[in-house]
Amino acid sequence: MAIAKKAWNTREKLDREDSATRAQLLRAARSVFEQRGYARTAIADITAAAEVSRATFYVYFASKEAVFGVLAGEVRDRFLAAQELDGLDAEDPYAVAEATIAAYLDAYVENLAFLTVLEHQAITDPAMYALWEEIHTRPRGRGARYIVHLTQRAMADPVAPPEAVATAAGGMVAAFAPGVAKEPSTRAEVVAHLTAMYLRLLGVPLRSPAV
């Protein structure tokens, strides 16, 4: 009997996590956080936006902090996924640079408003600070390791240590993201410019234009 009850509780938990209502609450919470900021957002604001009761909110989340933490985790995962580029030849620095820059820029543009809220919350919330750091340090670490990989194969001659180049590349993308968010039509041009600058930092010669 105890085993059956445990199995039922596990299934019930999975049902809650996979629920369309949970997804609706997350969408509503993200929208409200982005509009009002963390401090000025109340659970009542989230439930009103999601058009559900307060009791329904507590079926899925224990608190405002909990739902914000889930959203922050999703943003972190989006940035990590931006570096999971299947089908690319790791030995082709041109293709890797362009694809990575484009994916990272898209991640920034898609999450710009929420990142602003997260950055502010990270000032006073150690858990959110850890997530904020992870969003930046893990991609930077991967980028630095890739630069080391290219350098060891004499395919790159970076102008600075790998960590510094990876940090600079991330900073450039972050600086250009607001402009692309405002003018999406500039995305292709910005990706081209960022890729060219990144290749310069890597010490990889630019490709000759096609004749």
Rank of each mutant, 00 (worst) to 15 (best):
D15F: 09
A82M: 08
R142A: 08
A169F: 09
Q35Y: 02
A20L: 10
R16M: 08
I46P: 01
G87T: 06
T116D: 15
P93W: 13
E134G: 11
D15L: 13
R145K: 11
A66L: 04
A156P: 05
R78K: 13
G141D: 08
M197K: 06
A102V: 03
M1C: 07
D89E: 04
S63C: 05
L194D: 05
S53F: 02
R187P: 00
G69D: 12
E91Y: 09
S31N: 06
A168K: 02
A62D: 11
I123A: 15
H120I: 15
Q152P: 02
T137N: 06
L88F: 00
Y58T: 00
Q24V: 05
A28L: 01
N111Q: 13
A160S: 04
V109H: 01
L131K: 11
F68L: 14
A44Y: 04
V148L: 12
V96L: 13
L88M: 09
H193E: 11
V159A: 08
L80D: 04
V70G: 05
A50C: 02
A175N: 02
E110Q: 15
H136Y: 06
R36M: 11
A97P: 06
A42N: 03
E110I: 13
H120T: 15
I135M: 12
F33N: 01
H193C: 09
S53P: 03
D18A: 13
A7W: 02
V180E: 04
I43C: 03
A39G: 00
N111K: 07
V59L: 10
A95K: 04
A81F: 11
S185I: 08
V180Q: 08
I43K: 00
D125S: 12
F57P: 00
F176I: 07
A81I: 07
P139G: 03
M172V: 06
A113W: 03
R36N: 07
T116E: 14
T167C: 12
Y146C: 03
V190N: 08
F114M: 12
A102H: 05
A196K: 12
L85K: 07
L201W: 06
M197F: 14
S208M: 07
S63N: 06
V96Q: 08
K13P: 06
S185F: 05
I43E: 04
A7C: 01
L206S: 08
R40T: 10
A164E: 09
P209C: 01
L202C: 14
A156Y: 02
A28D: 00
E110P: 09
L112C: 07
P178F: 08
A122N: 13
Q152K: 14
Y146I: 03
R40M: 13
E34Q: 04
R140T: 14
R27L: 13
Y198H: 14
A20F: 10
A188H: 08
G170E: 02
H193S: 12
I3N: 09
A90Q: 14
I123V: 15
F61E: 01
H149I: 04
V70T: 13
A81V: 07
G203N: 01
A127R: 14
A39M: 05
D106N: 14
L118A: 13
Y38N: 00
E98V: 15
G37T: 02
A48F: 00
R76F: 06
A192E: 11
K6M: 11
V117T: 08
I135L: 14
P162I: 03
L112W: 10
E91N: 14
P205Y: 04
T47D: 02
V109E: 01
A196P: 06
A175Y: 04
